[in-house]
Every structure is written in C-alpha cells, then in structure tokens.
C-alpha cells in the first residue's frame, strides 16, 4: 500500500505543478517561467531531503537520552512493574507477544508518553518497542501483527493534553483555550477504538496473512 501512496503523492504532486505552470500565463516581466515546478524542486524535493536528515540527526541526542533513561528504569525493575500492572490489557492487544517480554514495557512507556504529550520521549520509547517487537519477527522486513496494532495505536494518538494547540489558542486571544480538550479526547478515543478493531479485522484477511508465511 505504501508503494501506491508514494507513487500517487509524487505523480499527482508533479502533475498538478506542471498543469499549473502550463496553464497559467506568466505575464510580461515574470522572472521565471515555471514558478510552481521550481518550488517543487527547491522546497519539495531538495528541501525535504535535507529536512529529513536534519530531523533524523536531531533525533539522535534525544534518542540517546531516553534510551539511557529507559535502561535505568529497566534495570531498576520499573518497566517490569508497569508491564505487570497493565498485563490484562496488553496481552489482549498483543496476543503474539509474551506477557513479560521487554517489548510490552517499551510499548507501555511509549503510550504513556504519548498520552502526556511528551513527544520527545514517546518516539524513542516507540522505536525501542519496535526493536523489541522485531526480535519476535520471523520474517525480516515484513511487519508483524503486533507491530501493525502498535502502529495504529500510535497513529491514532491518545493524547490527554494537547498542549501546543492550547498554547496557540491562548496566544490567539481565545476566551477559553482549553474547551477543545474534551472533544479532542473523545475524537481520539473513537479513532483508537475503531483503529484497533480495524487492524485486528484486517489481520485476519488472507492477503495479509499470506505475507507472514515464509
């Protein structure tokens, strides 16, 4: 599916830009004949490639920090404690993962950080969880059912306090910047529940089952 989405983004993106530049009259004195295509080249292609590396490099320090803290928490037994407390939920969500597997602790840390809106910490915990889930993967390069479920919980983002949104609303002179918290939590809860149902249902489809066979 990612192959099709990738193709669609690129073909439609360049197609629309080309269409725009060919149909609009640059007018006399226009400095460039293909303004949108140039924007695609500079911002879209070259700029994004650079941004990707800047983002990844920027992540290294934060990754190191949280993976370090996670290791301390692990050795102190904190992660196991958390994993044990949430075992009734996690074993149902991830039946293929042993209840005391380190992946469970990392996933719980990631979801908790997400709920608190600590994006800096949630990504490192999430990547640690993926690494642990991958140790249970029998077919390298292919996502397991547990990985897909974990990803959907992550992309449906269970955030209790959308701090950035509230900050922007407060700065824009809203009389009640926090009034959106309730509906946002409800919407996010709906999307997580439906997302988990859908991911579990899709996992049973023959076309996705087949991909797991070696």
């Amino acid at each position: 599916m990612l192959n099709y989405i990738w193709l669609a983004l690129i073909v439609i993106g360049i197609g629309v830009a080309l269409g725009h530049d060919l149909t609009s009259d640059p007018g006399s004195g226009a400095s460039e004949r293909y303004p949108v295509l140039n924007k695609v080249t500079n911002e879209g292609i070259i700029g994004s490639a650079k941004t990707a590396v800047t983002l990844a490099i920027g992540l290294i320090g934060i990754m190191a920090l949280w993976l370090g803290i996670m290791k301390v928490a692990e050795q102190a037994g904190l992660i196991a404690l958390l994993a044990r407390a949430l075992r009734p939920i996690t074993t149902r969500l991830f039946p293929d993962v042993p209840a005391d597997h380190p992946a469970m602790g990392a996933m719980i840390m990631n979801i908790s950080a997400n709920m608190l809106g600590l994006q800096n910490a949630s990504t490192p915990f999430g990547l640690k969880a993926m690494e642990e889930l991958n140790t249970l993967n029998k077919k390298a390069g292919t996502a397991t059912n547990a990985m897909c479920t974990f990803l959907v919980i992550n992309t449906s983002n269970v955030q209790l306090i959308p701090a950035t949104v509230i900050a922007i609303r407060a700065a824009s002179g809203s009389a009640n910047p926090t009034e959106i918290i309730g509906p946002a939590i409800l919407a996010t809860a709906c999307s997580t529940i439906i997302g988990v149902i859908v991911v579990k249902a899709l996992a049973k489809l023959p076309m996705y089952k087949k991909q797991l066979e070696a």
């Binding site: 990985m147 897909c148 449906s156 999307s191």
Partner: peptide, 19 residues
C-alpha cells in the same frame, strides 16, 4: 527496524485518521 512491507498498518492507520 528496516520494515518496508507494512501490511495492514497503513490502511488501518488511515481509517483511524478518517474516524
């Protein structure tokens, strides 16, 4: 984790976004 075959993660994620 070098996974490129993402199976049903993308469609399920997009359904969650839509919801």
């Amino acid at each position: 984790v070098a996974v490129s075959k993402t199976r049903h993660a993308v469609p399920a994620g997009l359904v969650a976004d839509l919801v």
